[in-house]
Amino acid sequence: MATIHAIPLARILGRAEKTKFTYLKGFGQNVEFGYYSWLVRDGTHNILVDAGATAEQAIHVWGRPPDTVEHVQTLEEGLAAHGLRIEDIGRVILTHLHMDHIAHIHRFGAAEKIVQRREWTFASQPQPIDRYYDPSFIDGLEFTMIDGDRQITENVGVLFTPGHTPGGQSVWVRTQRGVGVITGFCCIHENFGGCDCGPAVPELTIPGIHQNAMDAYDSMLKVWNAADFVVANHDAKYILENEVS
């Protein structure tokens, strides 16, 4: 069995911004969320899911008010808590290529970098209306490009989950708790309603930021049906609860 560990890097207070996560719900409501990388350990395989973002980036690149941003730890500190260094990571699975998920990707020179081909194609020449991409973040990098669902190790694989972005992928991990899925679309647990995974008619709310609403819903349903538990990739709970499984 594998394990999932949250590596929180920054805490953000979104003033009146909840609807950026919960489409057409939560207007005018505050939302606390985090920037993360996720450490997945499957035997001798040390896998990082997403390459994070920083508090400094939030302030100086995206213009967030400094009093709404809190630095939590560096990526090195987060990995050191598990006895690891940057060079100990053998694979980085990128759920998508928005800037807040790839800030540190250039630091993993020796690691295999796995991304959906459709995501890389769009991110390399994004439409100007989508300001969450910056091609300079991925310039000069070599990627393992895949198409669709793929098993990565014995207990880890990816699900193709577009909608939030053209080529998003979520990461399933077989753990002692069951199959956990780290979402490849930006969400909080409220997106999945108040129920545990399993009901035939789930209470799903798609991400407020999306390129295709219908695909986003279908992808959420795919995650719901695959998971025993969902790891919502921006939920603030993991800032304190680092051990996911």
Rank of each mutant, 00 (worst) to 15 (best):
M214S: 14
K25L: 15
I152G: 11
C195Q: 06
D215S: 08
R117A: 13
H71L: 02
E119F: 07
P202N: 10
M99F: 02
H104I: 03
G78T: 04
I12H: 02
F108C: 07
G184A: 10
F192A: 01
D196V: 15
C197Q: 14
I129M: 08
E77H: 00
I239H: 00
E32A: 05
R41S: 09
P207M: 03
A53P: 00
I152Q: 12
K222R: 08
G52N: 04
H45G: 01
Y35W: 15
I182V: 09
E154D: 14
H106T: 13
Q125K: 15
R118K: 12
D149N: 15
V181D: 09
V173T: 11
I93F: 11
G14Q: 03
W38R: 01
T121K: 11
D42P: 15
Q169E: 09
K20A: 12
M220Q: 10
E87I: 01
K18D: 00
D88H: 13
C197F: 01
D228I: 09
P199R: 12
C187L: 04
C197E: 10
E32C: 00
V40E: 06
L141F: 09
R177G: 04
L240W: 04
P162K: 13
T95N: 11
K222N: 03
N242I: 11
F122P: 03
Y35C: 05
D134R: 14
T22N: 09
M1N: 03
E119C: 08
M145G: 00
